[in-house]
């Protein structure tokens, strides 16, 4: 009993540690005082003002667009990559997986400056495209590492059976293989999107002066003082995602329960 209590307490403390800064930011977004240090009363001012702040809105647009495009492109390249790699022999496969692991294990600062040097050497213009390329690069490994385990679990003979029964390879892929690996693809996409959204370091080195994402905008504001609109925007983003993810995680559970009840009722009849 005591042990269980201690364990519960430990969990609670860890989650307080993880979520205290987030709670702080949420509180600050309603703080009428511009200073972070004192509470000046409740206000919704920052929530209305942020929509009128065109530079914040532009940064939000850049952030979301880069996150979406980089995650989408990384998902396509990464899924194809995972399928190709899993068809390879042992040696080739280990080599490819080592390359895949480089951006995951390498320091962001090294990845960032290496790409910066490449873009300079190629005479590539810094801006939206350079950031997009960098984000795709660090996102692909997340997709590959999410899809690979699902590919390992799939039974090769079902795909072969589909071919034997006259399905074209493309048709067999979409009807047989894809449904099996879809959860891996989706979690790869979601993870990529999250990583891209949260990235600062690699964007910092590859963006050039003309472009800002939310992260780089916050970093330049650190010295001057963060605008409270930023807290409002972050709170709104966080709340949106929280609700979406809760819906995704909770709805199937509820549906399952409803189906079970239905089945039980039917059985009783």
């Amino acid at each position: 009993m005591v042990k269980r209590g201690v364990e519960r307490l430990y969990l609670v403390l860890i989650f307080i540690f993880l979520y205290a800064p987030i709670a702080t930011l949420v509180v600050l977004s309603f703080n009428a005082s511009r200073s972070r240090a004192k509470w000046g009363g409740f206000t919704l001012e920052w929530y209305t003002e942020m929509f009128q702040n065109s530079s914040i809105m532009q940064a939000l647009y850049n952030t979301l667009l880069i996150a979406f495009l980089s995650a989408a492109i990384a998902t396509v390249l990464g899924t194809l990559g995972a399928m190709g790699i899993s068809a390879m022999g042992f040696r080739m496969r280990s080599l490819c997986m080592s390359v895949t692991n480089i951006p995951m294990l390498n320091a962001d600062i090294v990845t960032g400056i290496s790409m910066m040097l490449l873009f300079i050497a190629m005479g590539f213009r810094f801006g939206f495209q350079s950031v997009l390329i960098a984000h795709i690069t660090f996102n692909i490994p997340y997709v590959i590492l999410s899809v690979m385990p699902k590919l390992k679990q799939t039974d090769k003979s079902t795909y072969e059976a589909a071919l034997d029964l006259g399905a074209s390879p493309v048709y067999a892929f979409f009807r047989v293989v894809l449904p099996d690996i879809l959860p891996g693809i989706l979690s790869g996409f979601l993870l990529s999107f999250t990583m891209s959204l949260d990235d600062f370091i690699i964007t910092h080195f590859t963006k050039g002066p003309g472009l800002d994402t939310l992260s780089t905008k916050i970093y330049t504001e650190v010295r001057k003082g963060i605008k409270p609109e930023m807290y409002a925007l972050s709170t709104l983003l966080f709340a949106t995602v929280l609700i979406l993810l809760l819906l995704i995680n909770v709805t199937p559970e509820l549906r399952k329960r409803a189906a079970l009840k239905h089945a039980q009722a039917a059985a009783r009849r």
């Binding site: 987030i22 930011l25 600050l28 916050i218 970093y219 650190v222």
Partner: peptide, 18 residues
Amino acid sequence: ILPMWMNFLLRTLAWQTL
């Protein structure tokens, strides 16, 4: 993973306030 949806810089900066 959820905390990652609150920007990494802001989350770290919040520790200043705390």
